[in-house]
Amino acid sequence: MSEFMERFCRLRDEKRYSELIEAIPYARLMGVEFGEDEQGDLVFWLPFHERNVGNTVLPALHGGLIGGFLENAALIHLMWNRESQDAPKIVDFSLDYLRSGKAKTLFARCEITKQGKRVAHVLIEAWQEDRAKPVAVARAHFLLSSPSA
């Protein structure tokens, strides 16, 4: 197990959310935060930061940033819910933009649709003020094991 996964698992087991984000440099740069809701499901959120803007006129969040936020949420969600201490590797990522991301907090939730021996499929949904009006939906495939494992 890598030093990173060792640290991840320790922080996860102690539910030290913000320290876990600190351990992932790009997640820290975006300004990601997350925690558990009353049901114990993970919720991710990204407070608005000027540095994340992709359209200065509207203004709107950068589409690539929304992708990075959702991809990162999927990875953390998967690692959070897995016993294994191997880091999953993303294989592909598909993202549909439904509304522009306004200069407000962006939320995301994930769902592991399938977790097989080798591959996991994760759905991700992002919204701002109203969950019924998603800003983006995405799905990702992750490889769970290396050929030698």
Partner: peptide
């Protein structure tokens, strides 16, 4: 850049950075 990394054990850049680069 070290602040663009996704996995500090490997130093590999976060996939989200590639997503932004492809989008742009």
């Amino acid at each position: 850049r070290d602040d663009l990394v996704g996995n500090p054990s490997t130093g590999v850049i976060h996939g989200g950075v590639i997503t932004s680069l492809v989008d742009t």
